[in-house]
Design a protein around this nucleic acid. Structure first.
Length: 640
RNA sequence: GCCGCUGUAGCUCAGUCGGUAGAGCGGCUGAUUUGUAAUCAGCAGGUCGGGAGUUCGAUUCUCCCCAGCGGCUCCA
């Protein structure tokens, strides 16, 4: 009996086994194992490799199902959606040349070399895709020899390029959906009927490989779900996320604004300024406890300072430059040069180390016009910045303390964050050995602190490796906030020295670090995270006092005065409007505490308290109320 | 910076097939004195993003610029 006609032993994830006829496909084998769940299987792992359900099982092996609940399943479904988009595009624009269409974290995109898309194309694409979904056409795998594959894509140099990367002698796979055939590794969902929840989110031009002068490709972005209902749920969530946009909230809550004549330069409004100052106070409290000193250095320096720091060579393109009496000056994009000058302002002893210099100065960076984005990407911003001058032996302890502060700070805001270790870039200062040593220290510290982190090779600053902290906004876009960077170069370039216990002069190492990062960006992300409902300690207005009627207005004013003497930001809202309307206004304006005063309260020296977001009221004495608000603010409670 | 789209009152938006614009919210005034998410009425508010062109006439059509939005790239 030939080997390929012998029954095959299949092992399932629960350890059970089955013997199936040769040539049985993965889908059928899985259906025999779990008949009731089989309709949810969209692909399979065969010996750990993702494959189509239609893949025949060649020899004994482990088989497990993939569903949309699995990360891998989502990627497979999303990628299948990308094929549907490509099919629709090619039908609409026959000379469009598809390039790549990967699944992404949220959905998928597909890039095409074609004429620019317009909004009018979208309904046509949607109609075409839904016709394919209705047809339920199968995703059919074709395996061909490399030479044949190259012939099949002769009109598409992009695809030919991908095939060229396939090893000699290896077969190349294509997938056919109806009349559309696309080069693809697979696997795919069994048929187009799986893609009822496909939706195009938008399109845009992208430059191939990030090369600005390259041919722009048209990128179609989308999401996909197995059912229409799941898509609707997603779109609803997305709409809610859009409503939490910090640019909208910032304007509604009168925190900040922008004008056309200062693109990328935020205007902090009075209420926003309160939040900004509270954030700074939060940081300063920590700085004080952790033995930092605060300094303030010039916003501008002559070119020579930036030549010394290395910015002139490595960062000039992103700096605002100006000329003063014929001399070239630059607006500082970072605080480090100033910190170096402070350290160098007199002779230093090893007894002063670690010397921790904090600075909250405004920084200016000439960000490209297409990149500025609300408060999260601006041209002028303030960081909770500091430079720690240390001996090499002190680095690890300082970085460990910083990681602890990261944890404390972000936990206060109930924000989730992630770490990224960025290593030596192609353009760098100093010696490779120094970089290796610095990278090793950071890695050791991260491991020692027991945190998860991702490594980004080549993404370090030009003067040293760094640990970056990332947050995500309401739309899931990642933003870098904090950063901890090691620097052996700048102190040397500024000829900084301290006298060691050995009587010799040594060059200190510097740790550049900011935890919240830019206060602007941080507030932007935070606003989206809390949907504008800032914790009481950060709220510009902490208490709104509402007199029920005219005769309660004096009592309301007295309560506001009482709150203010305790440092609580309170305002009363007169009685011209109905109580319902004023309650609504306070809720819409995200005031954490609403205190209503009517006959009962005035008579009893109490307030009817409505906590933001909670319909239920509570009657308590005004003394207790004041104490409660004070306590929530003092402890920086997240919830009111 | 690149590609596409958008730009009408403080905000959200309608409208003008080319004949200089309207609503709701907000603001102001008045009436109402209200018990927990929108009381009623009146009034004010716009060189329709800026500039040029076509036209008897441009907010509307064309071009240029500016800004915003979505991506790309880059970054705190």
């Amino acid at each position: 009996m030939p080997a390929d006609s012998a029954p095959v032993l299949v092992t399932f994830p629960d350890g059970t086994t089955d013997v199936v006829p040769p040539g049985t496909c993965c889908g059928d084998a899985l259906a025999r194992w779990r008949p009731s769940e089989a309709p949810g299987f969209l692909a399979a792992f065969l010996d750990g490799t993702p494959v189509d359900l239609s893949r025949p099982i060649g020899s004994a092996g482990r088989l497990s199902p993939i569903t949309f609940r699995d990360r891998a399943g989502q990627a497979i479904l999303h990628h299948s959606c990308a094929h549907l988009v490509a099919k629709a595009i090619v039908e609409l624009v026959p000379d469009a040349r598809p390039t790549v269409g990967p699944a992404t974290t949220e959905g998928f995109h597909y890039d095409f070399d074609m004429r620019p898309l317009t909004p009018d194309d979208l309904p046509k694409l949607a109609e075409s895709m839904s016709a394919t979904v209705r047809s339920g056409e199968r995703f059919e795998r074709l395996e061909v020899a490399k030479e044949d594959a190259l012939r099949m894509v002769s009109s598409n140099p992009y695809k030919a390029g991908y095939i060229a990367e396939v090893g000699a002698g290896e077969p190349v796979s294509f997938y056919r959906t109806g009349t559309f055939v696309d080069l693809c590794r697979g696997p795919h969902v069994p048929h187009a009927g799986w893609l009822k929840g496909i939706h195009i989110l938008g399109f845009s031009a992208v430059t191939l490989g990030g090369v600005p002068e390259g041919t722009p490709l048209q990128r179609v972005r989308g999401v996909g779900f197995p059912t229409r209902e799941e898509l609707d749920t997603y779109l609803k969530m997305r709409k809610e996320a859009e409503a939490r946009d910090h640019r909208v909230l910032g304007q509604k809550l009168e925190l900040f604004t922008f004008v056309d004549s200062a693109p990328g330069f935020p205007i902090w409004l009075p209420r926003g300024m309160i939040v900004e100052r509270e954030l700074e106070s939060f940081v300063r409290e920590h700085l004080h406890a952790s033995h930092y000193s605060e300094v303030r250095t010039p916003l501008m320096f002559a070119q020579s300072v930036f030549e010394t720091s290395g910015h002139w060579e490595h960062y000039r393109a992103d700096m605002f430059l100006t000329e003063i009496e014929g001399r070239s000056f630059g607006w500082k994009p970072m605080n480090c040069p100033g910190a170096m000058l402070v350290f160098g302002s007199r002779a230093r002893s090893y007894r002063e180390l670690p010397l921790r210099l904090a600075e909250f100065a405004p920084l200016h960076r000439l960000e490209a016009s297409g990149t500025i984005h609300g408060m999260t990407r601006v041209r002028e911003f303030v960081q909770d910045d500091a430079h720690l001058f240390v001996t090499e032996e002190q680095i690890e302890e300082e970085v460990t303390n910083l990681l602890a502060w990261v944890r404390e700070a972000f936990t206060t805001f109930r924000l989730g964050w992630s770490y990224e270790l960025s290593t030596r870039p192609t353009q760098f200062l100093g010696e490779v050995e120094t970089w290796d040593r610095a990278e090793a220290i950071l890695e050791r510290t991260l491991k020692g602190s027991g945190v998860e982190y991702r490594v980004s090779p080549g993404e370090g600053a030009f003067y040293g490796p760094k640990i970056d902290i990332h947050l995500r906004d309401s739309m899931g876009r990642p933003w870098q906030t904090g950063t901890i960077q090691l620097d052996y170069q700048m102190p040397r370039r500024f000829r900084l020295e301290y006298q060691g216990p050995d009587g010799q002069l040594h060059t200190p190492t510097v740790i550049h670090r900011t935890i919240l990062g830019s206060v602007e960006r941080f507030l932007g992300v935070l606003l989206e995270h809390v949907n504008g409902r800032l914790p009481p300690w950060l709220s510009p207005e902490q208490v709104r006092v509402l007199p029920v009627g005219e005769r309660h207005e004096n009592a309301a004013n007295d309560l506001v005065a009482e709150l203010e003497t305790h440092g609580i930001r309170a305002e009363s809202s007169g009685s011209q409007e109905t109580l319902g309307k004023r309650v609504r206004a306070a809720e819409v304006e995200r005031v954490p505490y609403i205190a209503v005063l009517g006959d009962t309260e005035v008579a009893g020296g109490s307030v009817a308290l409505r906590v933001r977001g909670q319909k239920a009221q509570e009657i308590l004495s005004s003394t207790d109320f004041v104490a409660r608000v004070r306590e929530k603010v003092r402890t920086r409670s997240f919830d009111p």
